[in-house]
């Protein structure tokens, strides 16, 4: 813990970063996002299994940053979002001071202790507890044996459904949606200044939380995530109605990977899947 605090304190006092987006513990021992602006603020920075938020969601706010580097504390999963934002020209690598943390998993339910029953799905198939690149690294990890990836089983089950059964499954899930857009707001890749659901000429998506409005919102958002979702699972964590949104986004990612050999947020230089034309594309319409 001291390692992270020290790194951040030094970064702020040596002006390596103008401020640092990190985590602090509040008086109820909840870990929450926090912006440390001074070396004294850095005393409050912390990291543990409850540091669930993907802080990259705050980066597009500083798109037109001119005044020095933005410090950000990232887990390896969060770094994928940072990378993806750089790939999509939303932020520049040179404008960032990345403080990586070694992570051994985060909780699903922030009100409960970290254990094998309270672990985020993404951690169960995470392959890198150390972020692949960083400007400084703090080791906050502890040994932990990851439970099995139970979402994969559910996905296999859904894959086996007929399209009518799948439709029924998703209609039942989307019926819960209240259009609070927490999924969009927590998503680091949902940075559009004007979301498609806010476009009214023409009105692409019904804003009402009806079966039609809910279905079109959730499916269109999923499509906008195809080949772009970096798998932080923040949408599902934020959903107050408990809709298993990552079943969709993870599936999209798996298709991007199996069909095109592409995973978003893995390389600073690789062109994005959706932004690339390839003559080797399987579909012949492109040729």
């Amino acid at each position: 813990m001291n390692e992270l605090k020290q790194i951040c304190k030094d970064a702020l006092s040596e002006k390596k970063a103008r401020f640092i987006i990190g985590y602090k513990e509040d008086k109820n021992k909840r870990i929450k996002p926090f912006i440390a602006k001074t070396p004294e603020d850095a005393e409050q920075l912390t990291f543990n299994h409850h540091a669930v938020n993907n802080l990259a969601v705050y980066l597009p706010r500083f798109k037109n940053n001119v005044e020095g580097k933005i410090g950000i504390v990232v887990k390896s999963c969060d770094l994928k979002a940072v990378t993806a934002l750089i790939q999509e020209n939303q932020i520049k690598r040179d404008d960032l001071f990345i403080i990586g943390v070694n992570c051994s998993g985060v909780v699903l339910d922030i009100a409960k202790e970290f254990n094998k029953d309270n672990t985020q799905i993404k951690c169960k198939y995470c392959q890198a507890k150390t972020p692949p690149y960083y400007d400084a690294l703090a080791d906050e990890s502890k040994d932990f044996e990851m439970p099995d990836d139970d979402q994969a089983e559910l996905m296999a089950k859904i894959d086996k459904m007929t399209s009518d059964e799948r439709l029924e499954f998703w209609n039942a899930e989307f019926e819960k949606c209240i259009k609070c857009y927490a999924c969009r707001q927590v998503c680091p890749m949902c940075y559009c200044e004007k979301c498609i659901v806010e476009k009214s000429e023409p009105q692409w998506i019904d804003t009402s939380s009806t079966a039609r409005g809910n279905f079109s919102w959730n499916i269109i958002r999923a499509f906008h995530m195809a080949g772009r979702c970096i798998g932080c699972h923040e949408c599902e964590r934020a959903c107050p109605m408990g809709i298993p949104l990552t079943l969709l986004t993870r599936k999209m990612g798996m298709v991007a990977s199996s069909e095109f050999g592409y995973r978003h947020g893995m390389s600073l230089t690789e062109p994005t899947l959706i932004g690339t034309y390839s003559t080797s594309d399987k579909e012949d319409f492109i040729k």
Partner: peptide
């Protein structure tokens, strides 16, 4: 640090603001 979603308002028993739309 608020991200500007409406989770708070929509789960709230007293928040009552609304929109009017044509469909």
């Amino acid at each position: 640090m608020c991200l500007g979603c409406a989770q708070c308002a929509f789960v709230c028993p007293t928040c009552h603001c609304f929109d009017i739309v044509d469909e």
